[in-house]
Design a protein around this nucleic acid. Structure first.
Length: 373
DNA sequence: TAGGCCATCTGGTCCT
DNA sequence: AGGACCAGATGGCCTA
């Protein structure tokens, strides 16, 4: 078979084929983009509003015509897929440029070689690229922030993979938890569980309060939160609620039988309570600003890595970290402790084995044990 | 359906 | 200039 093999014919055939390829690539790009937007709106960068599912050509383009590799990418790694698409987009914009430019100048003469003139369009592209990169960085930053929040979720009471605390509740609970633990430390005795839980629940939403209470197998009704975020006791005498279990052994936690609370609640760990019932909020609450403390701030201690507080005070330690002082109350610091919700024992020493740094802190463990699996 | 929560984009500001 | 950080806007998802 004779094939016309003159140069002109070859060139025009090649041009036609190239154009066809370009059209096909454009169709693929349009379709892939719209599919991605529909399927994964939250992870798609909104870089080009005018292309947001504009059904020019690709909207009706059959999905099975998508290149397999592109579809796989989309399914497996949307982010990477996105970046690939951005590359494709850049490619397409370059191609559009080529198409606009043509091979001849305004006078129909062949264009001279050499560096292209810089045009505003390039600047636009560049700023667009920068915006994309900034978006990606922002995404990464927020992801790392969320990772940190997730690790915080795991160390505050009531961690549950199924019922995740919201961000704000996690932060509130963490703050209350730190507060409550610091109270325990400053008091230097086994904590009053009810007060501990009430401190934990301060300012939390009712569902979270229920969750926390459920973790301790307590009756959540006893920890109703009022309009001001104050945890109000609304049940029986708290003393009764905590210590009186009709028909049960004293070691059986309240609500252990037939509780309507979270069925996945953590195992209850019974504390031995030595003191009489104590007022719940002798101290300023976590919500109420810094507690009054005239003493000088001491460097925070480090208890078994749980309180990994720096020894060198941060610059704004005093103004932003008013909890810090509470960790410093070592045995005998009754000046602080006497004002605490958890009072120091008359002997003025910790009833626990308390070891600083890399040794066990049993009280801490007991407290934590009440909340974690 | 309203409201809460969340992820993302975006422009501004500050810092290196 | 470029990156980090922040807050506002927007839209999706979920639940009561």
């Amino acid at each position: 078979m004779e094939v016309p093999w003159d140069t002109e014919h070859v060139v025009s055939a090649a041009t036609r084929q190239k154009k066809l390829q370009r059209r096909f690539r454009r169709a693929i790009w349009e379709h892939a983009r719209c599919t991605l937007i529909r399927g994964n709106m939250l992870t798609l960068p909104f870089e080009e509003p005018h292309m947001m599912c504009e059904p020019r050509f690709g909207a009706n383009y059959p999905r099975e015509n998508l290149p397999e590799s592109l579809e796989k990418e989309r399914q497996h790694d949307p982010d990477r897929s996105n970046s690939d698409m951005r590359e494709a987009e850049d490619d397409i914009s370059d191609r559009d440029e080529d198409e606009r430019e043509g091979d001849h100048d305004d006078n129909g003469l062949p264009k001279k070689r050499g560096p292209r003139k810089k045009r505003p369009g390039k600047e636009m592209d560049r700023s667009k690229v920068r915006r994309h990169e900034a978006n990606a960085r922002e995404r990464t930053r927020m992801h790392s922030l969320n990772d940190a929040l997730e690790s915080l979720r795991k160390v505050v009471p009531c961690y549950s993979k199924t019922q995740k605390l919201s961000k704000i509740e996690t932060l509130r609970l963490a703050k209350n938890y730190i507060w409550a633990l610091s109270e325990t430390l400053s008091a230097g005795k086994r904590p009053d569980l009810l007060a501990f839980v009430q401190t934990l629940c301060k300012g939390l939403s009712q569902p979270t309060t229920n969750l926390v209470a459920g973790c301790l197998q307590l009756n959540a009704r006893n920890f109703l939160t009022d309009h001001n975020g104050e945890v109000m006791f609304s049940g029986r005498s708290p003393y009764d609620a905590m210590y009186s279990y009709p028909g049960t052994d004293m070691n059986t936690p309240p609500g252990h039988s037939g509780s309507n609370l979270d069925s996945s609640a953590k195992p209850f760990r019974h504390y031995s309570y030595s003191g009489a019932y104590e007022p719940y909020y002798e101290n300023p609450s976590p919500e109420g600003g810094s507690p009054h403390f005239d003493g000088q701030l001491s460097p925070p201690m480090n208890f078994n890595g749980i309180f990994s507080l720096k020894h060198d005070d941060p610059p704004d330690y005093g103004k932003s970290s008013h909890y810090g002082m509470r960790y410093c109350s070592a045995p005998g610091r009754t000046a602080l402790a006497h004002n605490s919700m958890y009072r120091v024992s008359p002997e003025g020493r910790f009833p626990y084995d308390l070891h600083v740094r890399s040794q066990s802190f049993q009280a801490q463990g007991e407290v934590n044990g009440s909340f974690h699996n």
